[in-house]
Design a protein around this nucleic acid. Structure first.
Length: 604
RNA sequence: GGGGCUGUAGCUCAGCCGGAUAGAGCGGCGGUUUCCUAAACCGUAGGUCGUGGGUUCGAGUCCCGCCAGCCCCGCCA
């Protein structure tokens, strides 16, 4: 519907201009052009679109809104392109203009989607090279529930942008540098030196425990602190023993992470913090050169504009610690600059997206501000922090295991799949269905993982997210199983109707024109045509839940249609037209779920 | 103390740069199966949109105050 909306917008603007030539010209001169305010209809009975502009124009044009609407409608009626596209425009209420597309045009539009792999979603014409920074676990730690949202949301956004045609670099900014390694290596030297020389001498779970011990010692023991700092220096200066230990730890973690990414079907390029190490010095030097760097209590600071602390003085972003070392702010600045810079020493991106928890909002605001002031953000370059809320348990507090530990991502996925399997087996027994073990495994793991992903993506990411296996695995409601099941029902029809995916790829097997008569058919058709609008919206606003709502509403529209309108038993051309709706519903669900990173099933 | 986010139905949440009677799911109650997977569909009850002001023809949406919860605030990321 994007193309149609554009056409209508242009027609409305032209009509407005013909109706009020002087006023439109004057407003344009004044830099405040008049806008007919085209929007999707707020209610189905209002048609497909509505134009709200007449109401707000009343004051500026010094005429009653209905008179303005009337003048615009008269001009629309005189436009052959408009009358070919729409039924006569209706004026409603205080001055809304309601627009209803001609059914034939809708049917044509829909028919053009058949056999189109992009389902009417155009590729963008202006490519924006984009870096998406997401997932980003820490080396020598296990991935836990805290990484879930970043990983799932980041992947979905990447998929949508890639589908639109943008070059996307998916970066895993893993925590592989800094003080933490000094602590860990120092501690391991004393308690488990073999871990530093032999691959996989201890498993990752033990490393996590060692890390915790190291952190505790670091906080309590000054001598340990000092040794740890020395170890960091050794690491950064390339000491072979320390360096080797570091590589072993990274390698081990990397393999563990990859198992999770494989399960989640997530593709990522690892480029950890250490990658930017060679650029830290120059970041600080350049900040100094452009006069932003201020030394305060021995630390290198950039004082922020518009952000003040307790005493009303500006707050600093510290980019060089008083011991001369660099911190995460320095790394983030170096990364940002590298990503915007052109090759060979840069990625040449024009849009940077950071998918991290909302708690880092002020940190990123500070980093972005400093980068802008330092002139590292190119003209037209976009910098976006995509924040998300905490994962909470049923009690509304941060999700923990019964014993109070953070939940390992692996365990969480295992439990989702296990619950899904128990449910499937129970259902098979109830229905006395016989299925092969491979089928049960495939369905359980697909549904389990899909449920976890969809539950996360389907809520507005900015708010905290209450994690509940029972809700995400529910077979009804706005859940992955409901959507997957809708697709399975369509697949059932397709198997009998002979128009499944891959069969009848030529649009020629469907009637031309498509013929619809029932309201359920039109409701489904309109929903199908809205895909491009939703995708464009997600691309812009980076809110995957918009796509989820769309797919859920599509499934509902389909289930209503399926329930109330016979397909296979209908006569032609209704039968073929309804099969076309089924086919497009299936394709749209597959595509949409695919963009969310969720694979689909033919049977379940 | 400063800053940010959040506050919408019993519960979990939508609400698309202000627009027509505030939506969905779950749960509750009541229905639907000679027919393509009923993991579905239909109906129904349920809301002072935290609160008080303001702007506007029009405010859940924008501005200000207040209340509550969570998060951040100089050398962790």
């Amino acid at each position: 519907m994007l193309r149609i909306a554009h056409a209508l917008d242009a027609q409305l603007r032209a009509a407005l201009e013909r109706a009020f030539p002087q006023e439109v010209a004057a407003a344009f001169e004044a830099g405040a052009p008049l806008d007919p305010q085209l929007a999707p209809a707020s209610q189905p009975e209002f048609g497909d679109f509505q134009a709200n502009g007449a109401l707000s124009l009343a004051r500026r044009l010094k005429q009653p809104p209905r008179a303005i609407a009337g003048a615009i409608v008269d001009q629309l009626a005189a436009d052959p392109a408009f009358t070919a596209l729409c039924e006569p425009a209706q004026i409603a209420g205080p001055g809304f203009i309601n627009l209803t597309l001609r059914p034939r045009r809708l049917a044509e539009e829909l028919r053009s989607r058949l056999g189109d792999a992009r389902l009417g979603v155009p590729p963008v014409t202006t490519l924006t090279p984009t870096v998406i920074d997401f997932s980003s676990p820490n080396i020598a730690k296990e991935m836990h529930v805290g990484h879930l949202r970043s990983t799932i949301i980041g992947d979905a956004l990447a998929r949508v942008l890639e589908f639109r045609g943008h070059p996307v670099l998916r970066l895993n900014h893993v925590g592989d540098w800094g003080t933490q390694f000094g602590m860990l290596i120092t501690h391991l030297k004393q308690v488990a030196p073999e871990a530093l020389t032999t691959a996989d001498a201890v498993d990752l779970g033990d490393l996590v425990a060692f890390y915790r011990q190291a952190k505790a010692r670091f906080d309590a023991d000054e001598a340990f602190q000092a040794t740890s700092r020395e170890e960091v220096v050794k690491l950064q200066s390339g000491d072979p023993v320390t360096r080797r230990a570091w590589q072993l730890l990274c390698e081990q973690s990397r393999r563990e992470f990859q198992q999770i990414y494989d399960r989640l079907d997530i593709r990522l390029s690892e480029r950890g913090e250490s990658f930017y190490n060679p650029y830290l010095e120059s970041v600080v030097a350049d900040l100094e050169a452009c006069g932003l760097l201020v030394s305060d209590a021995g630390a290198g600071c950039v004082f922020l504009e518009g952000v003040s602390g307790k005493d009303g003085k500006p707050l600093p972003l510290i980019v060089r610690k008083s011991d001369g070392g660099f911190n995460y702010a320095t790394t983030d600045l170096a990364a940002l600059r590298y990503r915007f810079a052109g090759p060979p020493e840069g990625d040449g991106a024009r849009r940077l997206i950071y998918v991290t928890d909302a708690g880092q909002a002020s940190h990123f605001a500070a980093v972005f501000q400093v980068a802008r002031r330092a002139g590292w953000v190119p003209a037209g370059g976009r910098l976006e922090h995509v924040p998300f809320g905490l994962v909470q348990g049923d009690d509304g507090k941060k999700l923990k295991t019964r014993s109070g530990d953070t939940v390992r991502l692996k365990d969480l996925l295992d439990e989702a799949v296990e619950r899904s399997e128990v449910d499937l087996r129970r259902r098979l027994a109830e229905e006395e269905r016989q299925e092969e073990e491979a089928f049960i495994q495939l369905v359980s793991s697909t549904v389990g993982i899909a449920a976890v992903k969809y539950a996360d993506l389907s809520t507005n990411r900015i708010t905290n997210y209450q994690f509940s296996f029972d809700r995400m695995l529910a077979l009804s409601g706005n859940t992955a199983p409901y959507l997957l099941y809708a697709l399975v029902r369509i697949a059932g029809i397709a198997r009998r109707g002979g128009v499944g995916a891959g069969e009848g790829d030529e649009a020629g097997v469907f009637p031309d024109p498509l013929v619809f008569s029932e309201p359920q058919e039109w409701a489904l058709a309109r929903q199908l045509l809205a895909l491009d609008t939703v995708i464009a919206e997600v691309e812009e606003e980076l809110l995957p839940n918009r796509l989820c709502s769309y797919l859920f509403e599509l499934s509902q529209a389909f289930n209503r249609f399926y329930d109330q309108v016979p397909v296979l038993k209908a006569d032609e051309p209704a039968r073929g037209s309804r099969l076309a709706l089924c086919r497009l519903s299936a394709d749209t669900l597959r595509l949409g779920l695919g963009l969310l990173g969720i694979p689909t099933l033919e049977r379940m």
